[in-house]
């Protein structure tokens, strides 16, 4: 039986209604997607069924995870943050910059830490052997970058091209909204985060079970960058702003909490 968009939409709605009811009953907001989210079919066999074991600063003050890797200049080059300059020619597409700050849950900047990004090209194609989408590769665009956040305010900025939407096989006529993958480290391994940034106003948002896996409306909105005209550069690029906030306890939190 063909799995249609309307089938996925019905499942998404049912989960959303259950969440609204739980919230009305006093349940806390869910900032992350549930790992068991059937509308995203690949999650069905890949989520644990047992509850997670809670490790707290009080039952494991020496936990290795309260520290984390600290990356440095040997890990990045100055060319890694401009994805339009990694080949001899100019990539096809709309040149953009994505800028923002990396913060911890107390709003403090995460300084000098590694951010990695990867994305499809302007046609919606990844240079990956498993990507079979019939859209052209761009010899002038690979779509992978990395940089360290600033030592002063935790800011970052990538120059790239706006990625295209692309089809996938979750269900019939499934399309991913344009997005950039982000990988982030905090000061503790517990703060590790991999996520995706979206572009404002994309009409595909409502149809995408990956974005909709974040059931909380406000949380989902935090995955969408803002167009910021002050970040656009004349005759060159359009500017987007996206701040990232890491979850999870860290050793510095414990020290300062004493």
């Amino acid at each position: 039986m063909t799995l249609r968009q309307s089938d996925i939409d019905a499942e998404v709605s049912a989960i959303r209604e259950a969440y609204a009811k739980a919230r009305a009953g006093g349940a806390p907001a869910a900032h992350h997607p549930p790992r068991d989210y059937a509308p995203y079919r690949s999650s069905v066999l890949r989520h644990p069924e047992q509850p997670l074991f809670a490790v707290t600063a009080s039952n494991a003050p020496e936990a290795v995870e309260l520290t984390g890797p600290v990356f440095g200049p040997a890990d990045v080059t100055e060319f890694d943050s401009d994805l339009t300059r990694q080949h001899t020619g100019e990539p096809l597409g709309e040149r953009i910059t994505v800028s923002g700050r990396l913060l911890d849950s107390h709003g403090r900047p995460v300084r000098g830490q590694l951010i990695e990004v990867w994305q499809a090209n302007a046609s919606g194609r990844y240079p990956h052997r498993r990507d079979q989408h019939q859209a052209p590769l761009d010899p002038n665009f690979t779509g992978a970058g990395r940089m360290l956040t600033s030592e002063t305010d935790g800011s970052y900025s990538f120059t790239t091209i706006r990625p295209g939407a692309y089809p996938w096989r979750n269900h019939e006529n499934a399309w991913r909204p344009a997005h950039i993958h982000f990988s982030l480290f905090g000061t503790a391994f517990t703060q590790r985060l991999i996520t995706q940034m979206y572009f404002p106003g994309d009409p595909l948002f409502a149809y995408d079970p990956i974005l909709q896996s974040v059931t909380d409306d406000a949380a989902r909105a935090r995955l969408v960058a803002a167009y910021d005209h002050s970040l656009s550069r004349p005759e060159f690029s359009l500017g987007y702003r996206w701040d990232i906030v890491l979850d999870g306890p860290s050793a510095t939190w414990i020290e300062e909490g004493r």
Partner: peptide, 20 residues
Amino acid sequence: MTQLPTPSHTVGPFYGYALP
């Protein structure tokens, strides 16, 4: 000031040319 966290997403299938 407490900030609400950025939600997680799947790493997806196509990280192979970027993360390893």
